[in-house]
Simulated assay, not measured.
Amino acid sequence: MQDSNISVKWLIHAFLIGLSINACFSILTISQITFSLFPFFTLYFATSRFYQLYISEADNEASVRPAWAAFFIGLFSYAAFIGALHPELGSNFISITITLILAIWLMYKMMFGDKHYPA
């Protein structure tokens, strides 16, 4: 196995940003979900901390694609969670499928990283 240079802090904050963006959007658009300020606070604090990490670790290009994957995992996993809580809103098959595909890809990247073979 290869040691990957992927920053776990980037992944956690990107996941939280995706989760809180979808929570904020769901609170504002779906009437079955009660209003709360906590997703807005979470979005603010996660984005500000992620920006600080991005500035301090600007040379960490190995974490960019996995961070986008973690962002979309958070986004689609909250959509799947809401679909499971409120089945009258519709199917959550697409969001579960996208979440699983991205989670498998992210797990592969975390375990094996990028293979660079010498010429």
Results as ranks from 00 to 15, higher is better:
5 N>E: 14
5 N>Q: 14
7 S>M: 06
7 S>H: 06
7 S>D: 09
8 V>M: 10
8 V>I: 14
8 V>T: 08
13 H>T: 11
13 H>D: 02
14 A>G: 04
14 A>N: 01
14 A>L: 06
14 A>S: 13
17 I>C: 10
19 L>K: 03
20 S>M: 03
21 I>E: 04
22 N>K: 02
22 N>P: 11
22 N>I: 00
23 A>M: 05
24 C>D: 03
25 F>G: 00
25 F>A: 07
26 S>C: 11
27 I>N: 11
27 I>S: 08
27 I>A: 01
29 T>M: 12
29 T>F: 13
30 I>P: 00
30 I>W: 00
31 S>H: 12
32 Q>R: 07
33 I>F: 06
33 I>M: 00
34 T>D: 02
35 F>Y: 11
36 S>T: 15
37 L>K: 12
37 L>C: 10
38 F>M: 11
41 F>P: 01
42 T>E: 15
43 L>W: 09
44 Y>G: 04
44 Y>D: 11
46 A>K: 13
47 T>Q: 11
47 T>A: 07
48 S>D: 14
49 R>G: 04
49 R>T: 10
50 F>N: 11
50 F>I: 01
52 Q>H: 15
53 L>F: 01
54 Y>E: 04
55 I>Y: 03
57 E>G: 00
57 E>L: 07
58 A>F: 07
58 A>K: 13
58 A>V: 02
60 N>R: 09
61 E>R: 14
61 E>I: 05
62 A>D: 11
62 A>K: 05
63 S>V: 04
63 S>Q: 05
64 V>Y: 06
64 V>R: 04
65 R>E: 09
65 R>H: 07
66 P>C: 09
69 A>K: 09
69 A>Q: 06
70 A>T: 06
70 A>V: 01
72 F>W: 15
75 L>C: 00
76 F>T: 03
76 F>W: 09
76 F>D: 05
76 F>N: 15
77 S>P: 02
79 A>E: 09
81 F>G: 04
82 I>G: 10
83 G>M: 01
83 G>S: 08
84 A>D: 01
86 H>C: 04
87 P>K: 00
88 E>M: 07
88 E>D: 04
93 F>S: 02
95 S>K: 08
97 T>I: 08
98 I>M: 10
99 T>N: 06
99 T>Y: 07
100 L>E: 08
100 L>M: 08
101 I>M: 08
101 I>R: 04
101 I>Y: 11
102 L>C: 05
103 A>K: 06
105 W>R: 07
106 L>G: 01
106 L>M: 02
108 Y>S: 15
108 Y>A: 08
110 M>Q: 14
111 M>S: 11
112 F>W: 12
112 F>L: 15
112 F>I: 09
113 G>K: 13
113 G>T: 14
113 G>P: 03
114 D>G: 00
115 K>P: 08
116 H>V: 15
117 Y>K: 13
117 Y>P: 07
118 P>Y: 13
119 A>R: 07
